Amino acid sequence: MTSVDSWEFYTDSEGKWRWRRIASNGRITGASSQGYANKSDCIENARRNGYQG
C-alpha cells in the first residue's frame, strides 16, 4: 500500500495564496516560502515541488 501526501492551498493573514504538503501521518513535509497574489501562481509553484493535481 502506498501512502499519498495531501496538498493544501490556503490564504495567509495577508490574503496571499500559499501551499503546504502534508504526509499521511499528518506532518507538514513542505510549504511555500512566499505568498502569491494568484492561486494559479501558487499551484504552479507547488507543481515544481511535486504537486501533481
Results as ranks from 00 to 15, higher is better:
Asp12Ser: 09
Ala23Gln: 10
Glu14Lys: 12
Ser33Leu: 13
Trp7Thr: 02
Lys16Val: 01
Glu8His: 14
Arg18Ala: 03
Gln34Arg: 15
Gln34Asp: 11
Gly15Cys: 05
Ala31Asn: 07
Ile43Phe: 04
Cys42Ile: 03
Arg20Met: 12
Ile28Thr: 12
Ser32Leu: 06
Trp7Ile: 07
Arg48Asn: 09
Lys39His: 08
Arg21Pro: 02
Ala23Met: 09
Ser33Thr: 15
Glu14Ala: 08
Cys42Tyr: 04
Asp12Pro: 06
Met1Cys: 04
Lys39Glu: 12
Trp19Ile: 12
Ile43Lys: 11
Ile43Glu: 08
Tyr51Leu: 05
Ser32Gln: 14
Asn38Trp: 08
Trp17Phe: 12
Trp19Leu: 10
Ser6Trp: 10
Trp7Phe: 12
Ala37Phe: 05
Gly15Asp: 03
Trp19Pro: 00
Trp7Met: 08
Ala31Gln: 13
Gly26Ala: 07
Glu44Lys: 12
Asp41Met: 08
Thr29Leu: 01
Arg18Pro: 03
Gly30Lys: 01
Ala31Tyr: 09
Ala46Gly: 05
Arg21Thr: 03
Ile43Leu: 07
Ser24Pro: 12
Ile28Pro: 01
Trp17Ile: 00
Ser3Asn: 13
Trp17Arg: 12
Thr11Gln: 15
Thr2Tyr: 06
Gly35Phe: 13
Arg21Cys: 14
Glu8Lys: 13
Ser32Gly: 12
Ser32Ile: 14
Ser33Ile: 09
Glu44Gln: 13
Ser40Val: 04
Ile43Val: 09
Ser40Phe: 01
Glu8Asn: 15
Gly26Tyr: 09
Gln34Leu: 14
Glu44Tyr: 07
Asn49Ser: 11
Arg21Met: 10
Asn25Asp: 15
Ala46Met: 03
Lys39Thr: 00
Val4Ser: 15
Ser32Glu: 12
Asp5Trp: 02
